[in-house]
């Protein structure tokens, strides 16, 4: 009887692995293998068609850090993160907070706020490009203003932040609104009985209860801010004058435009390490919290 149970357990375990197999294969093939290859090749000299020419030591890294365009891209990325992550968190949280109480008309703001998810990134980027394209832009024509849009460094960065928020908004909103609505109503009721209301109820009871979800959106925003490249390729091509050339856009030009394998691998290895570091911080934080 006991033996039978173990075999059954074995079987179910095997079955679990079987289900996992496709995911593991995909991860190994398209994630682990290329990551390892990049890290190893970052210490080698590789030519444009991928042939290994010899050992390079730290040359690729030295080249990367001596390129003023790379240093510039680091600054641009940090600026973007500093502007985008707080702005995105604030705006999505604000929208979710204002519409958190379900009512008969909830579907209207929900529909409006969910909708961005259904529009493709490139469509948004193209739209933004036309709306904010220099002095002769759609925006200036409509409003009679003279906003320089994507032709000035500050304008281009601002448009990019707005675009970034648009792209992240839908998903973040769904996450936050679900979190708000799944708060145990008895807790809110209890707080109300104790005399808490309005702002205090929101800030001291509701927000702390969805803290984890807010944190998820912050990390998602951080991830998107570090990896942003596609909208830049369409919207500004890194310009004007490299003012929107983020680290990943720099990677794109070096790897895909210039075929510079050395810099490509060195940068890939660095970004991988950074991503691993951020994930470690996040999981450690979660673990500490769970243990408490």
């Amino acid at each position: 009887m006991r033996e039978k149970k173990t075999t059954k357990k074995y079987h179910s375990q095997n079955k679990a692995y079987l289900y996992l197999l496709p995911a593991i294969t995909v991860a190994a093939l398209f994630y682990w293998y290329p990551s390892l290859k990049s890290i190893v090749e970052s210490f080698l000299t590789v030519n444009q068609s991928g042939k290994i020419l010899g050992f390079a030591g730290l040359d690729n890294y030295r080249r990367l850090f001596s390129d003023p365009a790379f240093i510039n891209s680091l600054k641009v990325s940090l600026t973007f993160i500093a502007l985008f992550v707080p702005a995105n968190t604030f705006i999505t949280l604000l929208a979710a907070s204002l519409t958190r109480r379900p009512s008969r008309l909830s579907f209207i703001p929900e529909y409006i706020f969910f909708a961005p998810v259904a529009v493709s990134l490139s469509a948004y980027s193209l739209l933004m490009r036309d709306i904010f394209r220099g002095q002769a832009s759609v925006l200036n024509n409509l409003l009679g203003t003279t906003f320089s849009g994507i032709t000035s460094a500050a304008g281009a960065m601002a448009v990019l932040v707005v675009l970034g928020i648009f792209l992240d908004f839908g998903l973040d909103y769904i996450l936050l609104i679900c979190a708000f609505r799944s708060i145990d109503s008895s807790v809110v009721e209890a707080a109300r009985m104790d005399g808490a209301g309005g702002w205090r109820l929101y800030w001291l009871v509701e927000v702390p209860m969805i803290k984890d979800t807010v944190l998820v959106t912050v990390f998602l925003a951080l991830k998107d801010a570090i990896l942003i490249s596609a909208p830049i390729i369409i919207l500004t091509e890194g310009g004007p004058f490299r003012s929107t050339e983020t680290v990943m856009f720099y990677y794109y030009t070096e790897a895909f435009r210039s075929g510079n394998r050395g810099v490509q691998n060195a940068l890939a290895a660095l970004v991988l390490t950074l991503a691993a570091l951020i994930m470690t911080i996040y999981t450690t934080y979660k673990k500490i919290k769970e243990e408490r």
């Binding site: 394209r133 220099g134 002095q135 002769a136 832009s137 994507i150 032709t151 500004t236 091509e237 310009g239 004007p240 004058f241």
Partner: peptide, 11 residues
């Protein structure tokens, strides 16, 4: 300006 120069000119 380095982008949208054609539009600036034609407008």
């Amino acid at each position: 300006a380095t982008s949208g120069t054609t539009e600036e000119f034609t407008s």
